[in-house]
Nucleic acid binder design. Structure first.
Lengths: 326, 326
DNA sequence: GGACGTTACGTGCTACGTAAGGATC
DNA sequence: GATCCTTACGTAGCACGTAACGTCC
């Protein structure tokens, strides 16, 4: 058994049982892969792929049994390479961050600027997506870290770190009846059409829960995936916006009235996810601490080393208390 | 990077940084390993071992970082080989069971006889040890399964399966004042010197707890690791024995009086441990079900697939209810 | 001097690429 | 006929064994 062979198996599966595509992707020849698979099957004594004629159609029973092990092996090989890179060139490499528009637009710019000046040799890649996509990208190793307020708990092999707590504000046109309201109430909001986030983004359910608890009907006329879009429609007078407080930018949004809503809704927690068993390069620890100062290297290591999920949750709750409120 | 090279690294560490010993153990030449290590270090770009002169003294920082990944890779390679063996020859191979004297002597004989006749091609190996040693042997993969009533929870990557519940009996010489006691009480036991298990074996603490709860003093004159030794001293008249009920064998122990003590002590649960992420051969599932009929393949798979420790405990508790009382 | 690791070197295996052949849709 | 896998074959590289050579306790 060779690591190459396992890599071939993995890539063939990833390419939907297509050896040619796998060969292209791995910059090698198709017959090379073909013969290596055969060799591996001979060595193990069972066929990994089911063939219809010469075409591979699916994994055999044995193939299905072994594929999880294969993936774990390749993941660990990746870890070892990361360790090597880190020792060889601690200040250069890649950092792939999967995150939502909200984080990328409002929470990350300052951090990324600071990080880039500290690590000019590290190229940063921001992958945007829905929280579910973010969780998946992180779980598969496509991204080094994922940042979102939801859905990260969906994958068993992600470790969650609480970064900061945040709450919402209401945005209205300057001439709106609510614009000069001193202390906003849910009841007041309920009188007007509302524009806010779609479900699955930015912990939208917190908003609904608040209104439901007071038996108020929330009249949502439009939902969008990000605050910029929401603000645009608030400007057209379609309704008032409920967005994350950090999405209000005095410099650009001076034409809108902003009303704090921190007393109306439960704060949400934005978390950072890393893959369980992933070895993190030194600069990743630095990035994390820049983003959430209480997440020191020790804290991250502690959480990541905790196999017990319930203990992980305990620690998460403990460190939420240290998370800044924005 | 080659799997061979990783195997070399692992074996060198296991042999206390001795390349020669590793070469002997792996049936290869010492210079071969030496050069492969060098090659790997060149490829990764860092030294894995710290050398004093030519002697390897310890793992370098990078070596320490990578060794966990190396071990995980080798474990998964092992799993793949197991899968292959199972497909190639489903009814032959090895089954290593780490267990205590009590299990090996009283609980397992019937099971093993049945298993052996069902799988004549599988060679069974019983490794005896203390519960802690059993847990360790199972966690390192030295044993396929571990069976004990204690200590198995000590290792994070062991999954526990509840097998059966059991309780204790009191053994006395036939002419002992207690011999004809109809319904035994703790108070009655407390009047006589007692011989029972040492701590760390057979859930001894249950006995102490029962007496402590009634503010009774237990006069333990001798403790031993197994019931055979305890019975021997009971025969000499040194004291009365408290042993697992299953340790009383009417055929051999007819010279002793046996008094049930199930109403005096909490039942204990004997568990079976398997390694998390270990792929189990088919006959292992059969063995487990022979030993504990409620542990069907589905149940075992369910428990093993549960990464969440607290969920694992919930499931454990659920299946304890199905465990036979002996 | 004994234990241990490195260097040097020859050999046989094998991974991989190219080219051609065959199956399947 | 396009797509995809297998077979055939030559080559370059490398793992491994043997033997000889440092080096540290």
């Amino acid at each position: 058994m060779k690591l190459r062979q396992l890599q071939y198996v993995s890539e063939i599966v990833r390419q939907g049982m297509n050896i040619t595509a796998a060969a292209d992707r791995l910059y090698t020849s198709q017959p090379g892969i073909s013969s290596q698979i055969k060799r591996l099957e001979d060595e193990l004594g069972f066929t990994i792929f089911v063939r219809r004629g010469k075409q591979l159609t699916e994994l055999s029973e044995g193939g299905r049994a072994m594929i999880a092990s294969v993936e774990r092996i390749l993941h660990e090989v990746d870890n070892i390479h990361r360790i090597a890179d880190d020792i060889r060139a601690p200040a250069s490499g890649n950092l792939v961050i999967a995150t939502t528009h909200t984080q990328a637009r409002y929470a990350l710019p300052g951090i990324i600027k600071e990080f880039s000046s500290r690590y000019p040799g590290v190229s940063l890649h921001l992958h945007q997506g829905t929280p579910t996509q973010i969780a998946e990208m992180t779980a598969t190793g496509e991204a080094d870290i994922g940042i979102a307020t939801e859905a990260l708990y969906l994958f068993d092999d992600l470790v969650l770190l609480p970064c900061y707590r945040w709450n919402r504000c209401v945005l209205t046109p300057k001439d709106h009846p609510l614009a000069n309201n001193r202390r906003l109430s849910l009841k007041a909001i309920a009188r007007y059409p509302v524009i806010t986030y779609v479900f699955g983004i930015a912990d939208r359910s917190v908003i609904n829960r608040a209104f439901a608890e007071q038996d108020l009907d929330l009249n949502v006329v439009l939902t969008a995936a990000d605050a910029e879009v929401i603000k645009t429609y608030v400007r057209t007078g379609l309704g008032i916006g409920i967005v994350a407080r950090m999405a209000y930018d005095p410099a650009q949004d001076g034409d809108l009235a902003v009303l704090d809503a921190g007393h109306l809704f439960d704060p949400s927690v934005t978390s950072l996810a890393i893959r369980h068993n992933a070895w993190l390069r030194n600069y990743v620890y630095d990035f994390i601490q820049l983003f959430a100062p209480h997440l020191t290297r020790d804290v991250v290591t502690e959480l990541q080393a905790t196999a017990d999920k319930s203990r992980q949750e305990e620690l998460f709750d403990k460190y939420v208390a240290h998370a800044e409120l924005r």
